[in-house]
Computed example of a mutant assay.
Amino acid sequence: MNPIATAQYGMLAATRRFEASAQRTAQAGSPNASIDMVSETVEQIQAKSAYSANISVIRTADQMTRDALNMIV
């Protein structure tokens, strides 16, 4: 299992969640829209947190690889 590839997919999924929520939020001004702004705000915060968590996974995997290579050399 490749943690970097998994984290990249997680970042993509978080980006898509954020974009979908942003589109729904942008439609809040239309007359027929029934957008729950609180739910959309929570969704955007969760997507941001998921994105950040996946970045941390990539950084940690990169550091672990570097440390392993330094032990070999």
Rank of each mutant, 00 (worst) to 15 (best):
E40W: 00
S21D: 15
D62Q: 04
T41Q: 12
N32K: 09
R66Q: 15
V73D: 12
M71V: 08
A7H: 00
S52F: 04
I72G: 02
S30E: 15
Q27Y: 08
V73F: 11
L69I: 10
D67M: 10
R16D: 15
T60L: 12
A22F: 15
A22I: 08
V38S: 09
R59D: 14
G29N: 09
A22S: 15
P31D: 11
S52N: 08
A68N: 08
M71W: 07
M71L: 09
T65S: 12
A5Y: 05
A53K: 07
T65N: 11
A26H: 08
M71Y: 05
R59A: 09
A14L: 04
R16I: 10
A14K: 01
D36T: 06
A50Q: 06
S30W: 06
D62R: 01
N70V: 05
I35D: 01
S49H: 07
I4F: 03
Q46Y: 06
A68I: 04
E43K: 09
Q63N: 13
A53R: 13
M11S: 01
R59S: 05
I58F: 01
E40H: 03
S30C: 14
A20Y: 06
M1N: 14
D62C: 02
N2Q: 06
L12P: 01
I72D: 13
S30Q: 15
M37E: 13
R17L: 10
A47G: 05
A13Y: 02
R17I: 05
V57M: 03
Q44E: 13
